[in-house]
Design a protein around this nucleic acid. Structure first.
Lengths: 201, 201
DNA sequence: TTGAGCATGTAAACTGTTACATGATTGT
DNA sequence: ACAATCATGTAACAGTTTACATGCTCAA
């Protein structure tokens, strides 16, 4: 239910139109709380009906500018101070990792290495953003903390993917040393190695 | 749409009933791909209708055991090898960080420190799991890779939260040194410091 | 015989995505 | 005149959550 608080939070900083908010969602908030245009306009209506927002101005092209009401600001504070963040319960990459046993060792290693590359790319992109925003104010002071989080996450994820690829690769070697044959059955799926006493962490 | 693949993936390992699957979702997959009982039973029906699963056995209490069909295994492989993981686009904690400006410096630092504690707790819990699973096989080989990811994530997140708390705290000090007064306005919200030349990263 | 655990399902409400639909204003 | 961009909204569908509803089996 945090779309509501994302909208409230953005408007707490400066009043804006739905269109303006969408630009914030697409740029600064894109990796933090993704939202579609449909959702934003819908939520603006609901928040206004609930008395947490008000239309402060109407401009050309039917533009409506919204401001947070005192009740809205209270709700935002309540959310920040009295409710626990709900943590992520889904991670597509990790889900795939669980089922890597369906692939050959080579395929699994390939998957993890592509993952590492993806993260490296992401980190590079974030480093670019960091340079770009420099000391420019529009990018919120606290947004900078979030950016740092993204950077650390991408770094960690890349390191993990490389480590995991090495782990899976080591399993292959261990199995190969045991029976001297390719460790796949007819279906191309890997054979479970008996005891891969692999480690290094 | 990965609930489908989570179910397929679990059944690719061993055939099971909806009830059995739910236990997997609640234990090993809980942090990786959360699902509710409603969803699982619904998806089993859809997958069977689509020919990706079959009921292999019916036991007491209306128990139905499902197996993956060759088509199901193909679909699983296709998903693993030919589709890109979709990455997370929402993070409640980070969203809150964006709006920390609504709180006093003390409150913001408190938020970040609580966050650090939460992560420390999580890490401890995962370390416990790691010890518990030991060399027990039911916990998938690749699940171990996911566990390591969780461990690294919790560690990184805790470090980040402590760093961020220090950053925010440093802003307070800088502002205090400038005007020698508490940097809050009447509403208890922080006053924007002019130029907190804080760094250390 | 009773309670814990096994086992399946449905309905309603809510949240999120995709696609469509419309039109005004501004700069070139 | 035209394109780009501003600007708002709706509808259909897909996915998710919460709550309800039901009944069987087994061991103590």
């Amino acid at each position: 239910m945090s779309l509501r608080h994302a909208v409230l939070g953005l408007l707490a900083d400066t009043s804006a139109s739905g269109y303006d908010l969408m630009k914030s969602f697409e740029t600064s908030l894109d990796h933090v709380w993704h939202a579609t245009q449909s959702q934003v306009y819908g939520e603006l209506g609901k928040l206004t009906a609930a008395g947490l927002l008000e239309v402060s101005d109407e401009g050309p092209r039917g533009r409506k500018e919204y401001v947070v009401t005192p009740a809205g600001r209270d709700e935002l504070r309540r959310w920040l101070t009295e409710t626990e963040p709900v943590r992520q319960r889904r991670n597509d990459t990790l889900l795939r990792v669980f089922f890597l046993g369906e692939l050959s060792t080579q395929e699994a290693v390939g998957f993890l290495e592509r993952e590492a590359e993806r993260c490296a790319g992401e980190r590079a992109a974030l480093e670019e953003v960091e340079k770009t925003v420099g000391r420019v104010e529009p990018f919120s002071v606290n947004g900078r903390l979030a950016l740092e989080f993204g950077l650390r996450l991408a770094t960690m994820q890349e390191e993990w993917a490389r480590w995991a690829a090495a782990q899976v690769g080591a399993r292959e070697k261990a199995a190969g040393a045991q029976d001297g044959a390719a460790s796949h059955d007819a279906s191309g799926r890997p054979v479970e190695p008996k005891d891969p006493e692999s480690s290094e962490r």
